[in-house]
């Protein structure tokens, strides 16, 4: 069974040989980038470097799948909001969007989004995805990802305007989120057409650290439902931060799987959602792979499996500067504890 087949069967809930080791968020690590003799800041603007860095990481750590791009700025940049790449900064910094629209009146969106795929770094992402899809004859699973409508809106318009508007200017904010939903759908369908194996929708700014469950139900859920209805390949609904109060609504959005981070009480979520739901999560990648001693990693991964996940996913992108020993311990622990059937996915 190839890594790609393992992931594809996993999402179809078909028996597999072992728990797939992959994520819907970035898994690029500094060891792979150093092997390529480039800097992290360089991989965001070059399709081959981006694709190679993903594949080198997968090879290095024996991962089943990869995800590109690594930053969340590409659609905002394609809409003219620019990007800061921090090419002159030492160390690792992810690109950011430097200029957001100050209010809804300033926001200017194209009538349809088909033209954005030729803008800014969107072709770089396409090129990187194609590189990964063709790597070693398509042996590895390749994931596409798009921010959720609300989080994407926060990339192009000031977040406080958006948050206050959700209570005070509900109609206009709702209409804007509807347009963002159109953009998310256009991007997801575009990546689907390139042949990716699964799409993760990262509505990561919408946990209940920020929004009330009621607001989530009224303003976030309907848009996510529309997104997942428009995707015909396996899809993942990912939210980081506090999700215990909304995990049932997340599962009700129509995605193939739900992914949450370490703030979620996984055992309770499994109980709430039952054994048919594919649940992904939920370890803290920074704490586990950067801060901890290697000997502590196995217990973290074991706890995820015992909590009831179907595949152990980090709660966010891996911080690229992981400790090699911790990565090895993480991979070994997934192999060790991932041999048995999980609630939603059986074993051969």
């Amino acid at each position: 069974m190839t890594p790609k087949q393992r992931v594809q069967k996993f999402f179809r809930r078909e028996p597999i040989d072992q728990m797939p080791l992959f994520s819907g968020m970035g898994t690029v690590t500094i060891q792979a980038i150093e092997k390529m003799q480039v800097r992290f800041a360089q991989v965001h603007t070059d399709a081959e470097l981006m694709g190679r860095s993903a594949m080198e990481s997968a090879k290095l750590w024996d991962l089943d799948g990869v995800v590109v791009p690594y930053d969340m700025c590409t659609p905002a940049e394609a809409l003219g909001r620019g990007v800061t790449l921090y090419t002159d900064v030492e160390g690792i910094l992810y690109p950011t969007v430097p200029t957001k629209w100050a209010n809804l009146d300033e926001a200017s969106l194209p009538a349809d989004f088909s033209g954005i795929f030729s803008q800014a770094r969107m072709p770089v992402v396409d090129g990187a995805l194609k590189y990964c899809l063709g790597y070693e004859g398509g042996r590895y699973a390749v994931g596409g990802w798009v921010l959720g409508p609300f989080t994407l809106a926060g990339q192009v318009i000031e977040l406080d305007v958006l948050l206050k508007g959700m209570a005070k200017d509900k109609e206009r904010v709702s209409a804007f989120l509807g347009r963002m939903t159109d953009l998310v759908i256009a991007m997801a369908q575009h990546y689907q057409s390139l042949g990716v194996d699964y799409i993760t929708i990262r509505e990561m700014g919408s946990g209940t650290d920020l929004l009330s469950p009621r607001m989530w139900k009224n303003l976030i859920k309907p848009n996510l439902e529309r997104v997942f209805q428009a995707i015909s390949i396996p899809s993942v609904n990912h939210i980081c931060g506090s999700t215990d109060l909304i995990v049932e609504m997340m599962a009700d959005c129509g995605a193939t799987a739900v992914s949450v981070d370490q703030k979620n009480n996984m055992a309770q979520s499994r109980q709430k959602l039952g054994n048919d739901a594919i649940l992904l999560g939920n370890f803290d990648p920074y704490k586990t792979l950067v801060q901890m001693e290697p000997g502590q990693v196995e217990a973290v991964i074991k706890a995820c499996v015992e909590g009831g996940v179907d595949a152990v996913w980090p709660g966010c992108d891996l911080w690229p500067d992981v400790k090699a020993e911790n990565m090895r311990a993480y991979v070994a622990a997934v192999r060790k504890f991932g041999g048995a059937p999980t609630p939603a996915v059986g074993r051969l």
Binding site: D209, L211, S212
Partner: peptide
């Protein structure tokens, strides 16, 4: 007490 969330905090701040 999770009666208010960030949107309310921002409006109170205003």
């Amino acid at each position: 007490q999770q009666e208010y969330f960030v949107p309310e905090l921002l409006m109170c701040a205003d």
